[in-house]
Design a protein around this nucleic acid. Sequence first.
DNA 1: TCGCCCATGTAATAAGTTACATGATTCG
DNA 2: CGAATCATGTAACTTATTACATGGGCGA
Lengths: 196, 196
Amino acid sequence: MALAHAILSLLIERPRSGYDLMKQFDGSVGFFWRATHQQIYRELARLEAEGWLTAETISQTSKPDKKLFRVTELGRSHLVAWMQTPTEPLTMKDDLLVKLFAGHLVETPVLIKELERHRVLHQHRLADYQTIETQFFQQPEHLPLEYQCRYLTLRRGIRYELDWLDWCDEAIHMLGHPASTLHTSGLQTTTDRIYR
Amino acid sequence: MALAHAILSLLIERPRSGYDLMKQFDGSVGFFWRATHQQIYRELARLEAEGWLTAETISQTSKPDKKLFRVTELGRSHLVAWMQTPTEPLTMKDDLLVKLFAGHLVETPVLIKELERHRVLHQHRLADYQTIETQFFQQPEHLPLEYQCRYLTLRRGIRYELDWLDWCDEAIHMLGHPASTLHTSGLQTTTDRIYR
DNA sequence: TCGCCCATGTAATAAGTTACATGATTCG
DNA sequence: CGAATCATGTAACTTATTACATGGGCGA
């Protein structure tokens, strides 16, 4: 239940409403965790019921009421305990690679077009992250630990997008320059079955 | 339902049993899709019921019987149709980055130890993928399209692991060399609230 | 006035995880 | 003799997605 922990780590920073959390997941922490508002409200209700959070209703003029959530001592200790136990890297799932895997079933331009579309998406995300980097983290070595940690998560996002961009270029280039038919025979049998 | 499509693309290559599929997801295609055997058997039953697959029971001596699955024309056309529609990049989720985000709540060595553990995991995966690369793909430009596509998925895996390794090094280095307290004041207020 | 922002939820379905369950063969 | 491989599944539970639902304020 790592969504719970992602929520806790945002709420420990500052009390927020479900709506605030939603925007965070959709924005600045979106490169390492995502959640829809439905998930968030359900999880908040659960965490409150378990006593990991407390809620306070705030009346607002010219805006709907909102519920501000705070992490309790119990919630905090659960988060810290989780942080001290090892966890495994995520099992990744990527539609685009599934499509490529069976890529010979469609026309090559279809693949290239989709690769280019993804390239643009990654480019936009990268630009967003780099804006944050230059705005808030000019001298990351001189920041206190708390912000160095934040910076490192941002760095992960930046690297991730850069890496996708490079790979998209590599793929578009390879598919755009059809194979010469020189050496197709010998290798065909060696890769005839899938490698293990 | 992209698990269905991942299964279809493996079965189009060659008829396989649920057990075969399980090994593939656990091995060579594991860097872009994963599934447990329970998921696979359930999905196979569903796809068979929908007429996207046909099953043939194979009796074996000194081994349990197995069911070989083949993709039907209907299944193939569904896969191709899916491949021609755009899909979005995965919404990533990473425990390690959640831990880092709230990293100031635990002792720095706890973070470094976990980073080093992940570093080793990524290093092993990278080694596996690179073995495949040198064994099967010495001259990828000269392969027919089908194997170029496979190669590109492998390249994605290699890049991904390399990128993680580099980032782990960056993070371990930063956390291992505590901040000098020179410029902590001014920046603290600018990053006081989370960036958007 | 049309659509977006704020703000919260329920309900149904799909997908993924964990636990339980069996049983022969083969290799060290 | 014990562990791993081959081979298949069911059941219960947790997570995630999609659709449905409401309603005022505010700016173009």
